[in-house]
Amino acid sequence: MRVTFERSGGFAGLIVTTSVDTATLPATETEHLQQLVQSANFFGLPAEIPAAAQPDRFQYEITVEDGNQHHTVRVGEASVPESLRPLLNWCMEKARGS
């Protein structure tokens, strides 16, 4: 499985990106990531989640490729579904660490 993450916008307008391939992760982390994708019902989320027009909030784009499944979700900070938040937080931690 491969996860590609981008956070843009915010007052600073910085673009933060990361890409994680489970082939490079320890087994426990791979399992954790798979759980996050599953509990977010990621492949069932709409491609665009409309956000309230709140200036300077972050914008996220996340893509998950898993076998023959491939899906991208774009979402504004003010509209992130609770179920997706742990996955976004995990990606942001990875982006900060890399």
Binding site: G10, A52, A53, Q54, P55, D56, F58
Partner: peptide
């Protein structure tokens, strides 16, 4: 939190 915003 690395941000400031106006929420409307």
């Amino acid at each position: 939190y690395d941000n400031a915003f106006w929420n409307g």
